[in-house]
Nucleic acid binder design. Structure first.
Lengths: 204, 204, 204, 204
DNA sequence: TATGAATGAGAATTCATTCAT
DNA sequence: GATGAATGAATTCTCATTCAT
């Protein structure tokens, strides 16, 4: 019944890997255990053996997904850097994460759209870690007089959501407007960095 | 079998209205026809009589939803205004739309997350209209030397997606951080307007 | 509720005509009132107005179909002819009927397969008229010493069923064995006549 | 999703057995999966687990049914016998099959009436085997100068269809004419054998 | 007569979950 | 740990029939 917290077996890893893709592709309701089993190449009952239930599997997937992002982004932000650099690194690291694994941004957006309907608490806590990191940067910058005061939440949503949107909307945009050349992710990231830094500049 | 294109009957309207809510709340897969029928107060077979299938109903809902937004936003942008004002009106009108009807932003984000998996072509075309409107504003501004050149798509995604995210993430944010006062939508809108205008300012 | 026995209106005729085809093509259970209405080009409720129910419509169709056959076959058999000729005319006339309107043989076979599950009494009576006609021929022939005694039923089933089978099985046979040239119906009829007459010959 | 081709499990056999009866009794459209499940005593979902769909189940049933007939009839025809005996054995064996299992003849007639609308290809191939067997007998007989040339198809349809008709039409005939004594199947078979042999006799 | 709009009672199919082996 | 075989509870969709106009 409970999600195992022990070192996950090879099979469990395989299942989780596939499940992450399926949940990103079809959402929680749209993901079908039979298809997942077939896709993974394991018996359906094995999934239940390892994860207890569909929700248990989803929890494990989301927590795994978001703890990875939080770990990497937070690790990339060094307190020795200036707040401007910290901000840039935060954005760049997050961007790199979702670019390397689009399942993250897709799942993030799904959960945001669903109001976190299926979001497990541990996964939510990982997002919170990210937010606190950004909050720290902002507060330091504001206290130093380098940033104009701004809601950390506003920025957080604009950065994580905005970049996620950009990555996810690529297929849709291409089907809407094929003549316009799309920005590369690194260009997009730079634009976001620039925009955020502009927004934080103290106007005098 | 075919979705009616005639003037929709009273019952059809009622069904569509409820369905828009349900689809926004639970997504395509999470919406249950029985519940929808019960919620609407009509017989389940009536839904099929009017819309043919679940997908047919979804198509009608999304098209209705997005054509409303496109109509209102485009109508609010007057060619007599300066490009700065046009931009502000575009953002404000879109913001007003999704604030008045959060189903729009939720559905928009769901579809963006799903890569348009269930998105019907006519609904997609409505989004295209919005994009073209913004594109026109940008191009005019750039040609006048008032805007720094920028990808219309970047802006479009940041505005529509960013605002949608902000509106939709409210419940999630509140569960993460209850001590921080949330921005009102009008404040958020102003911030977005400011940020976008800053981003478009010709530097030096 | 009751099948109208008055002169059928133009619409009623149109419906019946289409229904006969549909019932032959898909059987009673396989025929769908919506499709029939669409096929006929009338409103579904009209069918109910004219025929009361699906079963009522089926009854009307079958009775119409089989009374036509019985009328024509019986009319073609003249008491002035020899029993050999009467037999030939019986077979030829029946053959001509089902060749001109394959719906007859198809419906006949369906009902025989279904054990008359949906067969209305009036339609059954029409088949009885045919049987009595054949019975008369046989009895006369036997009494005259021209026919060897034989069960009328055996012959009846072999003639009506056999010819129906031949006509109906054409598409199936062609998909099984495309290289063999199929007999024309008139040839088939002649073979049946010959076979039946051989079978009735008094052996000495 | 795919019909299993492995050795069928006990449950699968049970389902198939019941389904064969139901399909014969009510036809494809008239057979209801709920009733079948109740009749078999298994869960409805089990039927789908084993056969994928109603059509899949039907395919399996028809193929099983007709391969049995073809096997037995073909096995009964020995090349050592004279063509007259071969012919008699063919007819007698087929007759014995459909007498022992009336579902065969009912299903055969239903499919002939429906023009093979639901008939799966493998089942059709079994009928083809029977036809080829008869064809071989005829050709040998004709080549030996013992049979008058005749279309194998004509005979095939008259024998299989004729006997099926006779067996199936019993209930109908009895309701039409209760006073006439019905032929026993063995008598009917003999009559058919005699008739066919008469028809094939070389007239000089 | 004719028709668009219902609707109740199904009927096919799906799916998360369990269980014996 | 792994798997084939269940199964109950949905869930989508269908269809004969009715009814107000």
């Amino acid at each position: 019944m409970l999600t195992k917290l022990k070192k996950p077996s090879k099979t469990a890893c395989l299942i989780q890997e596939c499940a992450i893709k399926q949940f990103a592709m079809h959402g929680y309701d749209g993901t079908i255990m039979d298809e997942l089993a077939a896709d993974t190449g394991v018996n359906k009952a094995s999934i239940y053996y390892h994860f207890g239930s569909k929700q248990g599997l989803y929890d494990a997937c989301m927590t795994h997904l978001f703890s990875g992002v939080a770990d990497h982004v937070i690790a990339s932000v060094s307190e020795d850097d200036s707040v401007w650099i910290q901000l840039e690194k935060f954005i760049t690291a997050f961007s790199a994460e979702i670019y390397a694994n689009p399942n993250i941004s897709i799942s993030l957006m799904r959960e945001m759209a669903a109001g976190g309907e299926n979001m497990p608490v541990p996964a939510r806590q990982q997002m919170q870690r990210l937010l606190f990191c950004l909050k720290g940067i902002i507060e330091t910058g504001v206290n130093n007089g380098m940033f104009t005061p701004v809601q950390p939440l506003t920025l957080h949503v604009m950065i994580t959501g905005g970049l996620s949107l950009y990555v996810n909307s690529a297929p849709m945009r291409q089907s809407i407007e094929s003549d316009t050349v799309d920005l590369s992710v690194s260009e997009m990231t730079k634009e976001v960095v620039k925009m955020v830094q502009n927004g934080l500049r103290v106007s005098e």
